[in-house]
Design a protein around this nucleic acid. Structure first.
Length: 803
RNA sequence: GGGAGAUUAGCGCAGUUGGUAGAGUACCUGCCUUACAAGCAGAGGGUCACAGGUUCGAGUCCUGUAUCUCCCACCA
């Protein structure tokens, strides 16, 4: 019935085609079943895919499959995040073009063409991993519906004053020429030089020493700071200082505890803006704003003779002048960590620009985010701590504008004359203000000019529940569908995707975006090393792994360990899964051999060990079920796996004689075993299929479908085996112990397991049960005469039969 | 600097409310059981990172230390 050998790649591809063509995982909008909706996070399309990408997805898929097998109607869409800066950079790299050199429409067209291939590659991988999502429910974050949703969300929030436009200093990348969010920055160790300068006091009473790594910022120096605790400089506070090279500029000395007494000379200059502290001082002390650097990283006109120079050239020139004019008295080399833009590695500047923000950081709002976070069910619970700690530290509103090209445009125009904001009408969305003009003029008579910024990619990724529920076209229905049932994500994006999605759902629906949140860990290449492209060596090559081990084995490996924890990639783990796969195949093949004449009619008399294995299964079922419910895929998998081996190595061995030789043991004994085998094997496959969907389907389609009728095993419903309750497990375990003792005896005496034993005496408390199983015990152990004695458990082997 | 997590057998891991350390794998000894040698049956292997403390009793609770990872903040 089953092939002699299970050809992994051939079978897996076959069933993936089948699932797709038959629409096995298709959401049925007319179904009467309860819906279980999943808000799939759209992974960023930014490059090649590796085995780590499958990890989080397959764990979430197991939870999805579990829910489907509880009889729910699954809404499991698949999304791709392909708008915004990461995608733009990918397109620039691959096509060797620069977005700012091309008309937007042209760049978008090139991007869309390139993305077709990437999207497909990505969707193929998801399908190849046996993820049971509905491919017809896909969305891209740059498609029309996503654009409409983002724009509608923006207009709604802006009209309520929740989104606002303001001139604020913020991190800026001079290479990408855009503002970036704090969390898009990363640390980089750079070599630099500490320049020690003497600043002259304005009253000519002397000089003060200041160390700086960025002397080119002198033209933007707006204040000097010392620590209030620092006795050396206490007398300086309030005095005025001349800025070196720009001596017509006079700045004041302030005291502030943010100054490190031991750092540099203990005196700091504040420039607008060298770093975050400068921003804070500027705000707190109401300092002047002087911008020394422009969008592209060149010095501005306030820099006098240095204007127009690139930042680094200006630094050299300034240092040279400081030297010749006697300000510089010492230079120390140092290595310090600098914030750089994670996408391109460019050190970040702080520039002041008009940007759109969403209100997120007031104490009342933070309270709200905490409240919502507490209402959410977290898997695992411990991940909530990260969310809470992040919310508590939130101190800036969310900046959503980016001065980029490939993204969702802001649907607004501004009046040239009075600055009034004109929003597009919701019916007209999606709107690109650069190519459409609003009707008429401003009430003041001024002309409207379009906003050229695009939205940050998170502004779209944070409305996936609204995209998925089609909020743009049918707000009422969508509002009923939110909160969705579940969202899954990696733990690195709790603070970005998750929080922002919570914020948007709160503003739009006044509720949580989802009821449950699954946070998975990472698959690591080695202890503490993330998988990255340059680390994906041959042993981790995805194509290779997929063809030798297959998706089921990769999924098995993904389910190892506790949920939310990192797993370390190791091939041994794959081998374990491969072993189980092979065992499932052989075990099923063997059992099905004896089920060709199976009648789906419960026999009148079911023998004790057959009842035992069914009860034993039900016990395992309960445990496994509880683990799946708690999103503990690893424990669930381990539980059912353990039982499968037990079933093969103990139960099958025990009853195979009855199956082989009905003429000796009787037809009733065979039918009894068949009944147990059918039920236990089918239900084991259901549970195993959550982790290993392909092999379960192959076996189901070859046999069980005749009786179970459902088109796919994945559409069947989980349940225990129906059997009258009785206390049989303890008694059955004694029988297993007896067999084990005899095997031990043979093993210790270096005998073959089929060696026949002339006589065995069993001493046990409940010999009447053992007597009922006598035929099975004698058959599996090769015993000729079995003697039973009432008493404490003991197995005594008499003479062995010599051939 | 703040927060989170980890440290248990050679290896990758599990240990739920404190009560004699667990499975898998590797190694070792055997066995070709009328499915599977990619199998089966056995055996050995651990100062539970370290130092204190609470307790009759600590892998588990408390305090501290070390190493590693992640997130956040700071970095003139």
């Amino acid at each position: 019935m089953l092939d002699n050998k299970y050809n992994i790649e051939e079978k897996e591809l076959k069933w993936e085609e089948f699932w797709k063509n038959e629409g096995i995982y298709k959401f049925d909008p007319h179904s009467k079943k309860p819906t279980f909706s999943i808000d799939t996070p759209p992974p960023t399309v930014s490059g090649d895919l590796h085995i780590g990408h499958i990890y989080g997805f397959s764990q979430a898929d197991m939870y999805a499959r579990f829910n489907r097998m509880l009889g729910k109607n699954l809404f499991f869409p698949i999304g791709v995040d392909n708008n915004g800066l990461p995608t733009e950079l990918l397109v620039e790299n691959k096509k060797k073009i620069q977005a700012h050199n091309l008309p937007r429409e042209e760049f978008a067209k090139i991007a869309q063409e390139l993305l077709v291939g990437y999207n497909q590659k990505y969707k193929n991988l998801i399908m190849r991993a046996g993820i049971s999502c509905d491919l017809t429910l896909g969305y891209d974050t740059i498609d029309t519906r996503s654009q409409k949703t983002s724009q509608k969300s923006f207009i709604e929030l802006a009209k309520k004053g929740i989104a606002y436009r303001e001139n604020k200093p913020g991190p800026w990348c001079t290479k990408c020429r855009t503002s970036v969010a704090m969390f898009e920055l990363e640390e980089s160790e750079l070599d630099s030089v500490f320049n020690y300068l003497n600043f002259k006091l304005a009253d000519n009473s002397g000089t003060i020493p200041i160390a700086t790594t960025r002397p080119e910022f002198l033209p933007a120096c707006v204040g000097i700071f010392v620590n209030p605790e620092d006795k050396r400089y206490a007398h300086l506070v309030g005095k005025l200082v001349k800025v070196p090279l720009f001596e017509d500029r006079i700045v004041k000395i302030y005291a502030d505890s943010k100054v490190g007494i031991d750092k540099g000379t203990g005196i700091v200059m504040c420039c607008t803006f060298g770093d975050q502290t400068d921003v804070e001082w500027w705000k707190e002390y109401g300092l002047e704003l002087k911008q020394a650097i422009d969008d592209g990283g060149r010095m501005t006109e306030i820099c006098g003779k240095y204007a127009g120079m690139k930042n680094m050239d200006a630094r050299k020139a300034v240092i040279e002048d400081l030297k010749t004019q006697g300000y510089l008295y010492k230079q120390d080399a140092l290595t310090h960590s600098v914030k750089v833009h994670e996408r391109c590695g460019q050190p970040i500047e702080f520039l002041t620009k008009k940007q759109w923000f969403i209100r997120t950081s007031s104490p009342e709002l933070k309270q709200k985010w905490l409240e919502l976070g507490n209402k959410l069910i977290w898997h695992p619970e411990s991940m909530k701590a990260r969310y809470i700690s992040w919310v508590n530290n939130l101190n800036q509103d969310w900046s959503i504008s980016r001065q980029r090209y490939f993204g969702v445009p802001f649907p607004v125009w501004y009046c040239e004359k009075c600055g009034a904001i004109k929003y597009a009408s919701v019916e007209d969305l999606p709107v690109n203000p650069l190519s459409t003009q609003p009707k008429g003029c401003c009430s003041c008579g001024g002309k409207f000019v379009p906003e050229s910024d695009v939205m940050d990619t998170w502004a779209t990724s944070s409305v996936t529940p609204q995209i998925n529920t089609n909020w743009v076209d049918d707000e009422k229905t969508a509002n009923k569908k939110i909160p969705m049932d579940m969202r899954f994500a990696g733990r690195d994006i709790i603070t970005t995707w998750c929080l922002r999605t919570i914020i948007k759902a709160y503003y739009h629906q006044g509720t949580l975006p989802w009821k449950e949140l699954l946070i998975n860990g990472w698959m690591m290449a080695d202890k503490g090393i993330k998988i990255s492209k340059h680390l994906s060596n041959s042993k981790m090559d995805l194509t290779q792994i997929m063809s030798t081990y297959g998706a089921d084995v990769v999924r098995y490996f993904s389910a190892s360990g506790a949920y939310g924890r990192d797993v370390m990639f190791n091939e041994e783990g794959l081998k374990d899964g491969y072993k189980l796969l092979n065992k499932i195949w052989n075990g099923s093949k063997f059992v099905l051999n004896f089920l060709y004449d199976y009648q789906p009619k419960k026999p009148k008399n079911i023998l004790p060990m057959d009842r035992y294995i069914m009860h034993k299964f039900n016990e395992t079922y309960e445990k496994t079920f509880a683990f799946y419910k708690d999103v503990e895929m690893g424990y669930a998998k381990a539980e059912i796996e353990k039982f499968f081996y037990f079933f093969c190595d103990n139960y099958i061995e025990l009853v195979k004689n009855r199956l082989y030789k009905p003429e000796v043991y009787g037809m009733d004994a065979k039918e009894s075993a068949q009944w147990a085998c059918y039920n236990v094997l089918f239900k084991m496959l259901q549970l195993l299929g959550i982790t290993m969907p392909h092999i379960a389907e192959e076996i189901y389609q070859n046999y069980f479908i005749t009786f179970e009728k459902e088109k796919s095993i994945h559409l069947t419903t989980l349940s225990k085996i129906k059997i009258e309750s009785e206390n049989i497990i303890e008694n059955g375990d004694v029988v297993i112990d007896i067999v084990s003792k005899i095997r031990q005896f043979k093993s210790e005496n270096k005998l073959s397991l089929k060696t026949e034993l002339e006589e065995v005496t069993i001493c046990a408390p409940n010999i009447s049960f053992i007597a009922e199983c006598e035929a099975d015990i004698k058959a599996v152990c090769g015993i000729r005469t079995l003697k039973l004695k009432q008493g404490n458990f003991d197995v005594e082997v008499g003479k062995i039969v010599e051939n």
